[in-house]
Amino acid sequence: MNTHILTIAEVDHNQLLSLLGYGSENPAPVSLLLRIQELIGSIIPKSLTALSAMTTITTIQHGLADTDAGTINSPTFGDLAVDAEAVIFALVTAGAEMDQLLHDCEDMVDAMILDALGSVLVEQGVEMLRNKLATELGQYVSLPFSPGYCDYPLSEQEKIFSMLGAEALGIHYHPVSFMMTPVKTISCILAAGKKPLNTNPCSICQLEQCQMRRLG
């Protein structure tokens, strides 16, 4: 198991504004943009903590990837991993500090900005981790695949946590809802291999109406 410290150099403003409900047809007002800059510049933690652990894919049986850590219960991931050699289990968190900021915030506009900022930061952290792992391994690494999305059951959260021993870092999940604390945390698996992979699980997912679909 490896621990990574990821430093976000620049927040993805387009993603942030999109999460807040803005786009090209309804640009954010200047006063909001200024407040976002103030919050980014003053109180947002820019360093994220990530954990990762890799396990070998032994076979693909009945469309599911069997690994040294057990079977990955997602046919879509099985399709994605058909040319992969390993599965990487990962967690990226903005930490308890971000939760505390959200908890202490009494201004609803600030709270909404902070909530969106936390989400954008961990999303960026996952992408940063993916690039880091690809470089370090010298392999292709797929886009992340999280429990609760596509056909990957939320109950698989348990497998990710048992692989990573995340509780030592203060990351927990609720045994019924599988919700994680700190709230701004992403758990995921990624396929890795020497052959070029179809790196985007969304391209083979059957949930065409999914709001989180990453295509185009």
């Binding site: 807040l20 409900g21 309804n26 007002p29 201004d107 609803m108 506009v109 909404m112």
Partner: peptide, 18 residues
């Protein structure tokens, strides 16, 4: 109405509510 017509978004409603 601005939110529904995509002329605005929730933060503007919150700023108005303030």
């Amino acid at each position: 109405a601005n939110i529904q017509d995509r002329k605005g978004a929730i933060p503007e409603l919150l700023m108005g509510l303030k």
